[in-house]
């Protein structure tokens, strides 16, 4: 049984106008029919450009946004749009690590009380100070520092505080929303290694969101690519055999360590279209170098088993755009 099963998840944000009497003049199609499963103990990487809906998807899963339609099943239980009260036990199992190590820690509170927050909110009995200090030690912080304020820590240390907070309730799933993209490259590896170690130790499942493909590659068992609210491609060995033209374009844009590898950069045309009025047919067709008439008319379905992709004219393995 998968740990998480999301089926046809849709999240639209209304666009309002007017101050006193609000009229809805449109919808932002942030997440537009996404089906994803997370297996127990795996790391699912989720990549895409800014605004593709990956963070919204994560927040829907974390119960921070109500879902417009679709279903989320967590550990065999339907948790779609649960009431606050019914959601509480689920929140113990699902934790989040945020992108901004500066914004995600309350600057006016001591680190110890920030890390103890989950224990206090969920009324976990026991010696909280000891629990906090154990957690700090586990994530590589000096437990003597529990009385300090976030401002007295470096970015990497702050992210460790965020990890400790997420770990406090021993959750099953941790949603990592771009946990290292705000950090220096030298620090990124430390945090990634920490996450890996914790996963082994506590049997955690990660939904790992990033816009940097290289970061995801290191940590993920499977990788999903999102474009304009939809999954474009999902595969364990995405980097070796990208089928979707968008994945190819993304991969060609990342820097390659090997200078001899001669790869052609694929330059995409235009900007990402507005999620308020997404393109017809395949969402990628206005920018796709391989687009044909069919792409504008019919939306491709997500097909395949272990390697899923949604494209009428996938790139042949070994072929090029």
């Amino acid at each position: 049984m998968p740990l998480v099963e999301m089926t046809d998840l849709v999240k639209h944000f209304p666009v309002n106008e007017g101050t006193l009497l609000k009229r809805t003049v449109g919808q932002v199609h942030a997440v537009d029919g996404v089906s994803l499963t997370l297996r127990q103990g795996e790391t699912l990487g989720l990549v895409g450009e800014t605004g593709c809906g990956k963070s919204t998807l994560a927040r829907c899963l974390a119960g921070l946004h109500p879902v417009t339609s679709g279903r989320i099943v967590f550990a065999g239980r339907d948790i779609t749009n649960l009431s606050r009260k019914a959601m509480r036990p689920v929140r113990r199992e699902v934790q989040m690590i945020f992108q901004d190590p500066y914004g995600s820690l309350n600057p006016r509170r001591r680190v110890g009380s920030i890390i103890a927050d989950p224990l206090v909110i969920h009324k976990i009995p026991g010696d909280r100070r000891k629990a906090v200090q154990d957690l700090m030690e586990r994530v590589g912080l000096n437990p003597e520092h529990y009385n300090r304020f976030p401002a007295e820590f470096s970015g990497g240390q702050r992210q460790r505080i965020g990890v400790a907070r997420a770990l406090a309730l021993r959750p099953k799933l941790i949603i990592c929303d771009e946990p290292v993209s705000a950090l220096d490259v030298s620090i990124q590896a430390q945090i990634l290694n920490l996450l890996k170690d914790l996963q082994d130790e506590f049997g955690l499942t990660y939904l790992f969101i990033a816009h940097d493909l290289q970061v995801v590659r290191h940590v993920s068992d499977r990788i999903a690519v999102m474009y304009l609210g939809k999954i474009a491609e999902l595969a364990p060995d995405l980097y070796e055999h990208p089928l979707h033209p968008y994945t190819n374009a993304l991969l060609s844009a990342t820097a390659v360590a090997d200078p001899d590898a001669r790869r052609r950069r694929i330059i995409l045309r235009g900007d990402v279209p507005s999620p308020i009025a997404p393109p017809s047919g395949c969402r990628f067709h206005p920018r796709c170098p391989k687009a044909r008439e069919l792409c504008a008319q019919q939306e491709p379905r997500l097909e395949g088993n272990s390697h899923q992709f949604s494209c009428h004219f996938p790139v042949r393995p070994g072929g090029s755009l």
């Binding site: 921070l64 929140r91 113990r92 699902v94 945020f98 914004g103 820690l105 909110i121």
Partner: peptide
């Protein structure tokens, strides 16, 4: 701010968010 979202994801009540997370700031 993200720390308010963090508190919300932990299941903090509105009152707790208002008085413990927002008020001191």
């Amino acid at each position: 701010r993200e720390y308010v979202e963090a508190a919300r994801s932990l299941g903090a009540s509105d009152g707790r968010i208002m008085f413990i997370d927002i008020l001191p700031n």
